[in-house]
Design a protein around this nucleic acid. Sequence first.
RNA 1: GCUCCCUUCGUCUAGCGGUUAGGACGCCGGCCUCUCACGUCGGUAACAGGGGUUCGAGUCCCCUAGGGAGCGCCA
Length: 467
Amino acid sequence: MEVITRFPPSPTGYLHIGGARTALFSWLYARKHGGRFVLRIEDTDRERSSQESVQAILDGMGWLGLDYDDGPYFQTQRMNRYREVIDQLLHAGQAYHCYCTREELDVLREAQRARGDKPRYDGRCRQRTQPRDEILPVVRFKNPRDGNVVIDDLVKGRIIISNSELDDLIIARSDGTPTYNLTVVVDDMDMGITHVIRGDDHINNTPRQINILEALCAERPRYAHVPMILGADGKRLSKRHGAVGVMQYRDDGYLPQAVLNYLVRLGWSHGDQEIFTRQEMFDLFDISDVQRGSAVFNPEKLLWLNYEYIKAAKAADLRDHARWHFENAGINIDEQANWKEVILVNQQRSKTLLELVDRSLFFFRDIDGYDAKSVKKHFKGQAGEVLVELRAQLGPLDPWTAENIHRRLHQLAERRSIGLGKIAQPLRIAVAGVAVSPPIDETLAILGKEAVMGRIDAAVNYINTLP
RNA sequence: GCUCCCUUCGUCUAGCGGUUAGGACGCCGGCCUCUCACGUCGGUAACAGGGGUUCGAGUCCCCUAGGGAGCGCCA
């Protein structure tokens, strides 16, 4: 049997970290089993759905590389089909019109709550034979009154819910449009979904959906309810916990593979392994190994993973991922002759692409001033003299290599009987503008002699203006 | 309130009846050092509580507590 999984977001916002994880699990499960992954847009809530959100979700999935084999389907385009199924249930006597008003239902619910009961519809319209004038009816599914629904959930294990806990849910609104629990069932059935992998907030819906499925004589899929992702405060992850939109991580300089890796390890593990290639995810992931309890989202670990991926990346890949970040900083990375050296020397010290760009900037363009604190600390004492002498030493240097530069720096330190820091730091500020850069010899080598000479001159001039 | 789900270091987790309860992130400290980093060595820290079952329980069962979700003409 071919495995078919699906991801059914409703387009009411961007792709959320939590949604991305269930999408990832569904996608992995399909890929692992050589099956298909279906994307279905649940846009029946016209009020809150938008085309921008559809695009945002597509963008998020695209960035993460979660490719789908089928779809995207749109529920709004399947209205006739839902109508057909509703009519079928009606004709078979498995659904009925309900003329209760919202007010009546409110009263019922209130009374039930007051009694300490779970609010649920009492089925009073099941027997009704005459329509009520002036009232457009909804359609309710005739849920079985006795027995249990048994779910053998792939992550939670066996779950048993008594039908007496359920009620006759609305499957069509008074305007005729279908509701969620109906559309999901029809879609999953029509699309041949074999494995429903979704958040465990849907567990309560599952028995209802199974009952509808059975009324339709459809085969039921396997279910896997994965736990929610929580914020640091233990509450369901939401906007107030910070960045929860997948694309925000792209903007913040994260690599998609790092985000994917973080997400797959959240609630799932394979022994002590932390880093998983895409192929390893396919090979090793198993939905039944997913943790039963919810997991807290930990941005620090994601950052660490991002760093690991940046360190291990090929320079050219880093350049491609960072290209638009460089553009945002006003740099066209493709025009930089020394782009590769710059990336190589900075990638091991950058936790994000943003940091990589930031650390690379002074290699690609002139510095626009000196960091005040650094100046105060290092542009003092003999700094000016040292730079002048250094310039004289480096001027004739040939070839201009890190090794040669290194040698000259040490010779100078020895001659003046000062620590290397007394030379490296002023020099670093002279060429980088700040007291932070890769090793000074490599920095100079990559920068090139001409730029270094110019920046030392500028620094010397600047120091001379100091009081 | 009712129903369902969940519970190992701060966090992600390993563990599938016998372990000094392991790894990772973070944090702290040593080493390295021209800055920032890297690296490396070490440290900190957990079986929610209580009953059973068993020679033996983090592992199996029950109860309690705590947390989460659902109870819409939202999805």
